[in-house]
Simulated scan of single mutants.
Amino acid sequence: MLAIIQEELAKYEVLQCRTTEKLIKRRSTRQKSPLCYVSIEETFDVVKSTHISTGHVGRDRMLKELQNKYANIPIKDVELFNDNRSEFTTQVITELKEVWPKQTLVHGKPRHPQKNSALHSGINWSPYSTMFGCEARVGLTTSSLPMEVNARMETEEDLLAVTPISPVSSVENHRVAERIKEIKRRRHEAADAHTSQAERMVKRSRVDLRDGEQGDNVAVPVPLVDRERGDPRNILGVIIDRREDTDQYKIAVKACILSGLYSRNQFDLCPQRLLNIDNMNTEKTVSLRSAVISQSASGGQGFTRCDCAGAQKCSTRRCKCLKAGLLCNSRCYNSLNCCNK
């Protein structure tokens, strides 16, 4: 019986800082980061503080951070905390809508400076740990020391008492060599994970985006900076050529051929062929903005205004509006009458 008790006690050790003592998992060396044991009463506060310090992230990121500091935080406690948090958030939102019915809720993911130390789903590591082989540390709050020990530290001697620094030795040189191997391993795994993620994205895009053929009708999205507010968001065109080597397409619209080549994800295929190549003007090539302007009912992006004066205002080609084939608008000479309205 005594042997069993001694075997169980050998699994633990005590970390002491001044008058504070914490039960931790026994370490093979004093330089290894301590993993603390927390009581049932402390579990909620520990999980909550970790949730706040990591930038209100999800279960997996919280669990990884907790496992770096504590030895007995089960995954069920983290899941329970996240579930209760979701229910509490839903209840708060419902009450806010009852108090202020006209309010608008904006959904989105907040941006936090901790993103370089957060777990990246594509590479299965955080960007910082992939680069340097260890997790990011900013002060004692991100160390593996418990909060009670950090709060009682007042001098450098207190820090050295819980984290002794030994002189450089063959053991330390071995640790440096192991760190270099760890960095190379993580970078290699990150590169493989990125390659695998790219292959999955290409495979998914080939399923969702079928290849276009010559004569297919397409809808090319027009960026907001290239169109007027009243212009359509897409311009209809026809595929007139496809480069097999680069998998890019040449597209023509009614007024011209669009300059440059388009990849498959830059346009949508129309289910029917409303236009054919014979309806297209293939004699000139212009930019997308110029093509939109040629089909715009309001003159396209921007506006044309004149500042003509005199008795015969806007009756000659000197008028910018008349020269552009447009009627004068309210921005011309304070909306006074003219010959081009």
Rank of each mutant, 00 (worst) to 15 (best):
Cys17Met: 03
His112Asp: 02
Val57Asn: 11
Asn276Ser: 14
Lys320Pro: 00
Glu157Met: 01
Val38Ser: 03
Ser170Thr: 11
Asn337Ser: 10
Asp278Arg: 15
Val171Glu: 13
Ala71Cys: 04
Ala297Val: 11
Ala190Lys: 04
Leu140Glu: 07
Glu95Phe: 05
Lys11Leu: 03
Ala3Lys: 11
Glu87Val: 02
Cys328Leu: 00
Lys203Asn: 12
Tyr37Thr: 03
Asp158Cys: 00
Asn276Glu: 10
Glu135Thr: 06
Gly215Gln: 04
Arg185Asn: 12
Val162Glu: 03
Ser121Gly: 15
Glu157Gln: 09
Thr89Leu: 06
Arg30Lys: 13
Ala219Thr: 12
Ser143Trp: 13
Leu258Met: 01
Tyr70Thr: 04
Ala151Trp: 11
Glu8Pro: 04
Lys22Ile: 09
Thr304Val: 15
Gly300Val: 05
Asp307Thr: 11
Ile277Asn: 02
Arg318Ala: 02
Asn337Gly: 03
Leu66Ala: 06
Asn124Leu: 08
Phe267Gly: 02
Ala324Arg: 05
Lys102Trp: 06
Arg331Trp: 03
Asp216Gly: 06
Arg264His: 10
Thr19Leu: 02
Leu224Val: 14
Arg204Glu: 15
Ala118Met: 08
Met201Pro: 04
Ala161Asn: 12
Arg233Trp: 05
Asn124Tyr: 13
Glu13Lys: 07
Val162Arg: 08
Pro167Glu: 07
Thr285Cys: 01
Ala151Phe: 14
Asn116Gln: 05
Val220Leu: 06
Lys250Tyr: 03
Cys17Gly: 07
Asp158Arg: 08
Ser259Thr: 02
Tyr262Thr: 01
Leu327Pro: 10
Arg273Ile: 02
Leu159Asp: 04
Cys134Phe: 14
Tyr70Phe: 10
Ala71Ile: 02
Ile251Tyr: 08
Arg59Val: 13
Tyr262Val: 00
Ala219Val: 08
Asn68Ser: 05
Gly55Ala: 00
Leu258Arg: 10
Ile235Met: 01
Gln295Glu: 13
Ala311Gly: 02
Leu336Thr: 13
Cys134Leu: 04
Ala311Trp: 10
Thr282Pro: 10
Cys306Val: 06
Gly260Phe: 10
Thr141Tyr: 07
Cys314His: 06
Met280Glu: 09
Thr54Gly: 04
Cys308Tyr: 06
Pro221Gly: 03
Met201Tyr: 09
Arg206Pro: 07
Gln16Cys: 10
Trp125Cys: 00
Lys250Met: 01
Lys69Glu: 04
His51Phe: 15
Thr304Ile: 14
Gln197Cys: 05
Ile239Asp: 05
Thr90Ser: 15
Ser205Lys: 05
Ile240Tyr: 12
Asn82Lys: 06
Gly108Asp: 10
Cys332Ile: 00
Asp158Leu: 00
Asp268Asn: 14
Lys203Cys: 03
Glu135Tyr: 13
Ser298Glu: 08
Ser205Ile: 00
Arg243Gln: 07
Lys313Asn: 12
Leu327His: 14
Glu244Asp: 09
Lys203Leu: 01
Glu95Lys: 14
Ser39Arg: 13
Glu41Trp: 01
Ala3Glu: 12
His56Lys: 04
Ser330His: 14
Asn281Lys: 14
Gln114Phe: 08
Gly58Arg: 03
Ser129Tyr: 09
Met201Trp: 07
Ile293Thr: 15
Ser205Trp: 08
Glu65Phe: 11
Leu96Asp: 12
Thr195Pro: 02
Ala309Lys: 09
Leu261Ala: 03
Ile52Ala: 01
Gly302Gln: 04
Asp231Glu: 01
Gly300Glu: 04
Leu159Glu: 05
Pro110Thr: 00
Cys319Trp: 10
Gln197Glu: 07
Glu41Asn: 08
